[in-house]
Design a protein around this nucleic acid. Sequence first.
RNA 1: CGGGGCAUAGCGUAGUCCGGUUAGCGCGCCUGCUUUGGGAGCAGGAGGUCGCAGGUUCGAAUCCUGCUGCCCCGACCA
Length: 490
Amino acid sequence: MAKELTSREDNYSQWYNDLVTKADLAENSAVRGCMVIKPYGYGIWERMQQALDKMFKDTGHENAYFPLFIPKSFFSKEASHVEGFAKECAVVTHYRLKNDPNGKGIVVDEDAKLEEELIVRPTSETIIWDTYRNWIQSYRDLPLLINQWANVVRWEMRTRLFLRTAEFLWQEGHTAHATKDEAIAEAEQMLRVYAEFAEEWMAVPVLRGVKSPNERFAGAIETYCIEALMQDGKALQAGTSHFLGQNFAKAFDVKFLNKENKLDFVWATSWGVSTRLMGALIMSHSDDNGLVVPPKLAPVQVVIVPIYKNDEQYERISERANEIKKALENKGIRVKYDGRTTQKPGYKFAEWELKGVPLRLAIGPRDLENNTVEVARRDTLEKESLLQQNLEQKVANLLEQIQKNLYQKALDFRNENTFKVDNWSDFKDRIEKGGFVMAHWDGTSETEQKIKEETKATIRLIPIEGYREEGNCIYSGKPSVQRVYFARAY
RNA sequence: CGGGGCAUAGCGUAGUCCGGUUAGCGCGCCUGCUUUGGGAGCAGGAGGUCGCAGGUUCGAAUCCUGCUGCCCCGACCA
């Protein structure tokens, strides 16, 4: 295993890449822009899936699965939707290969051309709404609350592990409602679910709000979002929830009879989070020693490392370690006993630190003597010696503390890096240094565009609730009713 | 898709300008001994169609032509 991690200060994006590969989360594959998610990384993703899936079910949703391929014609039915995705679609044009007549391997069989090309889904609104048409006739069929776990493909120009890959894993919820208010309530509810997940499970504090028209999802009336701040001062969109109005219902002719026996188009939402959350997790908590995983999502919450000088000691320590492991597991804690005899303790310490395991227990001859165990916290890197009595409770408490501490640290960081700015030169200066900048904006796309061109900063979100404040646009000087959050983003 | 760069062992690289024996080094890997409370030491060993296809030459990692792939910077994006 390669040892040294590039430091964040030396080269932040190199640090990120090193970390993802060295902590065994993922690696680049033979296919450009597509990654291989390794077992350890996938283990974290599975934890995320489980927690989210439960939250979706608790809010009344069911899982289903729709096809990977979408007929090309479906895409042209919702105008702004095509426009948003057309430039990054993978297209299936043929269904057969044959041996090259010139003997150069295998080639596409031109005779096997599809009548209608198939698009590899970049998102599933179109195929799902085409299906919903047959599922919905009456208000009694509503609401329809469905989620799917899937992979999607967006042919991105430049990719980065987890943050932007050509293929990524996600969930997409697609709901249909009888009224506008109900659909809006659904979109807002799912945003709350995402925010709660980010904060309570990932320990990543997020801002909630809506996107400006420029940044809105293709085909949406309103896009709600959560935004997190990464350690390098750039913002990351961590989840979105869209109120789609009747756009897709009209495009796919999904009508229902309401209680008054009148035909109406249904109201829609869609919402999703992706493996990008892995990127948010990594960049929120990790340090120059490697990954830091919040206990609630850690595949391994506690690792036990034995320290010994001979076989006899190894046997005795292993026995004790396995007893402790069992006791912890009985309390629902995920424990790994690293009894490898092929690596030295120092090596194991470094390796588990790199992988971000929240707590490490070391047991050596001294601990056997004294009935103690050395406990090391990944978040603070502090070590202390604890008596083995009632260790389960102490460990459980520590895990809880670590979870809270990670959230608090990330929150403090965000607060320290959120600034109110009231004039253009301060704005440019502040954006250059990173962080969220709260500033007045005149509400026009033109201004937003100009600001983006001149500073690379975008409006990350417009707060939904909270205080209103009169002011003047940072760029145009025109009147504004509230501050919005600007940042450079991933 | 524009601009720049790179391609040599699993990874990172030297050698390429100026052609010349068995292509060198570090990490990792294998074997043995000594080690084990923060990434061990010593000794021995395995591993290479030098991205691909042509060409020049007595001789090509090195020179020429064509191709392919990747990386970085822009425009695009969850």
